[in-house]
């Protein structure tokens, strides 16, 4: 097991990252996807904090705020147009609209 118990903070961060990653990829609800992304990013900050990371300390946080805002804006537009948050349903409706 090596350092796994010694590195428990990193281990927690990694577990969070895995959960966020899966949520982002496999949930169909847009809001849940965004939550998954936020979890993934927070996990990385936790990892960095555990490492006493110094250089470029604030960068990921700024990026995360911006990307979350952008994703939410896209979701708002999609909801206004298709009245659902389910990305599969939205894709299907968009295809039908085109045809």
């Amino acid at each position: 097991m090596g350092n796994l118990f010694n590195n428990y903070e990193e281990a927690c961060a990694i577990i969070l990252f895995g959960i966020g990653f899966t949520t982002l990829l496999l949930h169909r609800n847009m809001i849940k996807k965004i939550i998954g992304f936020s979890m993934m990013d927070s996990a990385i900050y936790l990892f960095l904090a555990a490492k006493g990371y110094i250089a470029g300390r604030k960068a990921p946080i700024v990026v995360s705020v911006s990307v979350t805002a952008l994703m939410l804006a896209l979701t708002v537009r999609l909801y206004r147009r298709y009245h659902t948050l389910d990305i599969d349903e939205i894709t299907m409706q968009a295809r039908r609209e085109e045809a």
């Binding site: 896209l74 147009r81 990305i87």
Partner: peptide, 10 residues
């Protein structure tokens, strides 16, 4: 357009 928004989201 609807299609571009979906594309951008994906």
């Amino acid at each position: 357009k609807g299609r571009t928004l979906v594309a951008a989201t994906r």
